[in-house]
Design a protein around this nucleic acid. Structure first.
Lengths: 179, 179
DNA sequence: ACCTGCATGTAAGTCGTTACATGATTGA
DNA sequence: TCAATCATGTAACGACTTACATGCAGGT
């Protein structure tokens, strides 16, 4: 599954929830999928154009002049299901923090400890944010059919953040002492 | 810190361990940093060329004809330290599994359970692999000054894999029952 | 009148992978 | 001698971001 197909997943998926303009689509992807997905304008507009050409979405006139609200068509839904069933494509790992720590001998022990403390704080802050989001959305979305699935994505964030904090702690322990 | 600077970190860092040909560099990055970093030939060759132009590495004649062994220079070490101290650059999140699960309503519950089982198995396999690697390297590298830092990167993989398996389990629990 | 937010699109440029072309060396 | 591996490099392509250009609508 090529990268651009995954953009189609994000776009078609968002449109199954509600018809939207391209602008709103970008906001929805940023605000709702933002914790695990991202798309820029430069991707969204051409993708919508391509999807329209293939009949997977159509334009509805919007409330404002020259604004198009995009609606997913039955063929678009079929296409989405097809795409969702394709194997998940892993992208090459690129973790800047681990790259730095791996060369910790060159960077120096104290600087590594700083990086780890930063990572720990970031992870704890993020975890708190996810917990809050979970509680908030449980009230707002708790009854919708999407809720169990939305919840899983937030849980992933919580588990990940918890693991990152625990890892940083363990590393700080092993790296303690005089430089 | 731009992406290409991070390529320089990987290249210069690897050369602090040992002088190498470009080919060996790519293998080292793939095999040693592979769990958290990746570079392709198309990146490595031009990067080495640029580093040579700036005097950060120099070519030594290799054992084979037309092969160059690259050696890091003092200015290269200084450059590496400078780069290691730049802030870590986070790249936009793109998690294909979470993207699919988020639209689980469209994909269907049973297919989501399959995805989660797959993720759990992959995580457990990966964790076992990391544990083995840790034990193996503890013997081979346990006395080198790089060891504490290498160990941290493997620990990160273990924590991450453990969290992923626990998450998948928790999700499978909430998603059980009749479709 | 003017600022902010909504809205659409394109173009330039970077980043990065893959495929290709080429050849030396080594071991079976 | 033949295949696999070591080795170097480039070219083409695709993916993606950012900046730019443009303009409407609503509120102060």
């Amino acid at each position: 599954m090529s990268r651009s197909s995954q953009t189609q997943v994000a776009v078609l998926g968002a449109l199954t929830v509600e018809p939207m303009t391209a602008y709103a689509l970008r906001e929805a992807i940023r605000d709702v999928l933002g914790h695990f997905w991202s798309e820029s304008f430069g991707q969204i507009y051409p993708t919508l154009q391509a999807l329209e050409d293939e009949g997977h979405v159509r334009r509805q006139e919007g409330a404002r002049a020259r604004s198009s609200v995009f609606v997913i068509t039955p063929s678009g839904t079929a296409r989405l299901i097809e795409l969702l069933n394709e194997p998940v494509q892993e992208n090459p790992p690129r973790n800047g923090l681990l790259l730095r720590l791996f060369f910790g001998r060159v960077l120096g022990r104290e600087r590594c400890r700083e990086l780890l403390r930063g990572a720990k704080n970031a992870a704890e802050a993020q975890r708190a944010e996810y917990e809050q989001l979970l509680a908030h959305l449980a009230v707002a979305e708790g009854d919708t059919p999407d809720w169990p699935y939305i919840r899983m994505t937030i849980l992933a964030g919580i588990h990940h953040a918890r693991a990152a904090a625990a890892w940083a702690d363990e590393c700080l322990d092993t790296l303690q002492g005089e430089p």
